[in-house]
């Protein structure tokens, strides 16, 4: 485009589409393709699900991911209050209140267990009463 062409273009207004054509032919930045290729290579590949041959099972297939550097875990140094040395990883255990103490009263439990074990089931007063009442019911005439 020369100076005269430019003047002509501005006069006639025919430059509208000429401007668009210039944009459509614009120079591409150097190394565009390489950068696109590099970006594509850096993109992690998705795993694909494959049908397991001959059965209803499935398996996952994935390529080894190239260019996936491990992320370092940055731990900030722990500095004690007042600029003192750190505690070198010593775990601080808080002081806690003592919980309730369970008292085992073994002396009180023994006699109960002994009484239960020494009393035969047949000698139970409730059982005797029930036997008497059962006999009375059996001897009573039917109404």
């Amino acid at each position: 485009m020369s100076d005269s062409n430019l003047r002509e273009m501005q006069k006639t207004g025919a430059g509208a589409e000429e401007t668009l054509r210039l944009i459509a032919r614009i120079a591409v930045p150097e190394g565009l393709e390489d950068r696109v290729h590099a970006r594509l290579l850096a993109e992690p590949r998705q795993a694909r699900i494959l049908a397991w041959p001959g059965s209803s099972g499935w398996s996952i297939y994935s390529r080894v991911q190239p260019g996936m550097p491990g992320r370092p875990i940055v731990v900030s140094p722990h500095v004690g209050a007042g600029g003192a040395f750190s505690e070198a990883g010593v775990v601080r255990r808080p002081l806690t209140l003592q919980g309730p103490v369970v008292k085992h009263t073994a002396a009180n439990e023994k006699p109960k267990l002994a009484a239960k074990s020494t009393t035969p089931p047949s000698a139970s007063p409730s059982l005797i009463v029930s036997k008497k009442s059962a006999a009375a019911l059996a001897s009573a005439p039917a109404q």
């Binding site: 485009m1 100076d3 430019l6 210039l22 614009i26 120079a27």
Partner: peptide
């Protein structure tokens, strides 16, 4: 960006 060859 646009080409301007031959222009002052």
């Amino acid at each position: 960006v646009l080409p301007a060859d031959g222009l002052s």
